[in-house]
């Protein structure tokens, strides 16, 4: 039973990743793309969780933790770059 549900969950997560990627390509402004990159990082964390269930190795969870940390730092760095540097729309 758990294998079937695992595959269904993987398919749903793949659809979510594709949909997020479509918005990442379409996204009209840079902050939209930053938000979508952060959502893709969250999706990767959830993917790693599912994959650790599938493979039976719990060591993958460390990768998920580090990925969440890196995504947070990247989001904050992007936001700081957006606000403090670069061209503004209202300049």
């Amino acid at each position: 039973m758990i294998d079937v549900v695992l595959w269904i969950s993987f398919v749903i997560m793949c659809i979510a990743l594709i949909v997020t990627f479509i918005r990442l390509v379409l996204g009209p402004t840079l902050p939209d793309r930053v938000v979508m990159l952060e959502l893709m990082a969250l999706l990767s964390v959830a993917f790693i969780g599912l994959y650790s269930i599938k493979s039976g190795h719990s060591a993958f969870l460390d990768v998920a933790l580090v990925l969440a940390l890196t995504a947070f730092l990247a989001a904050v760095g992007f936001a700081r770059y957006l606000e403090k540097g670069g061209l503004h729309d209202d300049d």
Binding site: S9, I12, I15, A16, I18, T20, L43
Partner: peptide
């Protein structure tokens, strides 16, 4: 399943 559906909800909202 619930977690995957919530992630799909996030993607669809995006």
């Amino acid at each position: 399943l619930v977690g995957a559906l919530f992630m799909l909800l996030a993607g669809l909202g995006a």
